[in-house]
Design a binder for these strands. Structure first.
Lengths: 172, 172
DNA sequence: AGCTTCTTCTTGAAGGTTAAACAAGTTAGG
DNA sequence: CCTAACTTGTTTAACCTTCAAGAAGAAGCT
């Protein structure tokens, strides 16, 4: 986000992005912004919820008894527990998720996908997949798709462990 | 986001993502989420503003007289005018941006980067570039960097023109 | 047991985003 | 001109996210 003045030696001059790197980075930011907006809008319109919430329902739908502990769900969706707490509160009000106490750990809560939640998913998944396809997969060659997967896997990996943060030990 | 039941012929059965596509897509979502969170946190901590706001200052810093019409800035940052309006209000309160009337179009407003805003940028840019490098560029081969740029350019392109949306004819 | 520490989840407030509606100004067509 | 249609930018309220703090239970240590 800046032009390189001079790469001085033994100096703490920041290593600015090269013009090529800048282009890559800007393309990334633009596409990521547009894509997330696009999907948020698509889902808000067709399913009445933002993309992240939809992702939560998907995770639950794939879990063993369609239930997951809050912390596990948060971790798997890459969001903070706080955010999840608010999200589940909303989804619960919609009747798509229900909370259940964990028998083995009285602090614990399960988020459980309700039948109604399943139904919403069943009804809206096709449209969502279509949107994803149209925005991403239909435009990329198999090679690019594979490359994208690898690249993003690498980036995600580098961001996962982190030292320790306020609310989220695993999220930096 | 679902398992393929059967690709029936001449049927409107949705084309679910293949397992490979699902992996790619999940990696993308995870990395994008983690990355945006990471950068948001980095900038919130070091610059006192979210990543998008930082991007606005950068755009302004590169514009001719360090000023851009609201609509142009919004378009270039890929956000809605409404969002920009709020953002500029906040940046103005921080003294980093100032609004100025457009002489040729009485409806128009320029967002102008103040000296103070420039200073914030100067002070925080190194740290931000370092974060981006560490999270992305340092982990990818030159080939992957190039591939990422191409891929994201394609995706962004497909999302740009669109038919016409409520507030944003160009977004969607 | 008793004490400290960690983990789980929630809360409340502050801030950011969205959607819809609007005022004001500009443009295009007759 | 004059009106209809469009643009620009803002506003409001509803919603979502973050941050810091905290209640409650579990785990570990002596």
């Amino acid at each position: 986000m800046n032009t390189a003045p001079t790469p001085a030696p033994g100096d703490d001059e920041p290593r600015w992005l090269t013009p090529e790197e800048q282009h890559v980075w800007r393309s990334y930011i633009e596409a990521a912004t547009l894509l997330e907006d696009h999907l948020d809008r698509q889902l808000q319109r067709d399913a009445g919820m933002p993309h992240v919430y939809y992702g939560l329902l998907v995770k639950l739908s794939e879990a063993p008894r369609r239930r997951l502990r809050m912390t596990e769900l948060a971790r798997s969706a890459k969001i903070t527990r706080s955010r999840l707490s608010h999200a589940v509160a909303r989804l619960e009000k919609n009747g798509w998720v229900r909370r259940e106490d964990c028998p083995s750990d009285k602090r614990g809560q399960f988020a459980v996908l309700t039948d109604e939640g399943r139904e919403v998913l069943r009804r809206t998944a096709p449209g969502h997949v279509a949107a994803v396809r149209q925005a991403v997969f239909d435009r990329l060659t198999p090679g690019q798709q594979q490359a994208l997967g690898e690249i993003m896997r690498i980036v995600a990996e580098g961001l996962q462990p982190g030292e320790a943060g306020a609310d989220l030990p695993w999220l930096r």
